[in-house]
Amino acid sequence: MRRIYEKYHEDLLRLAVSLSGQTATAEDVVHDVFTSFIEQARQFRLTGSLRAYLATAVAHRTRNVRRTEIRQQRWTQEGERPAAEGTARPDRWLICSEDLNEVVGALAQLPNEQREVLTLRLQAGMKFREIARFQDVPIKTALSRYRCGLTKVRSLINGEVPKCDR
């Protein structure tokens, strides 16, 4: 377990922050993924790569968190974040590099689907077929999202890019 943790935790954190755009969310997501992974271990059957499995779990959980955030936003006044969300945590686990700050800022401006394809492909090393299955779309759609997303990120990085962890 330790080896699994040590081998993958940084990659998963990077993936989570790229998908969520929030370091606090990314930390929670990766922590949850590891704890769920061991708690549900007996029901788990590994048929492919463990890396892809964990990356998919991170992507799923990030989606859920985002949905919850959207629901919370609907409950609060327009544009107002839920109180706990903006609170800075003193025990910061994850620190983004300058490059990652820039990348996360650009990725945040993409539609979710494109952001997922780009990060799962480039940061988690998943195959397009695996990504297409995860998104439940044809492989051509995944490829097209990848191309489109990459072009947009390039434009954003070449121009003005918002910073990570706003």
Binding site: L13, S18, S97, E102, V103, T119, V153
Partner: peptide
Amino acid sequence: SLKDTRNKIARAKVHTD
């Protein structure tokens, strides 16, 4: 270029405390 962008996304690092 697109290749640079790809590399930037793939190689961007995180540090953990």
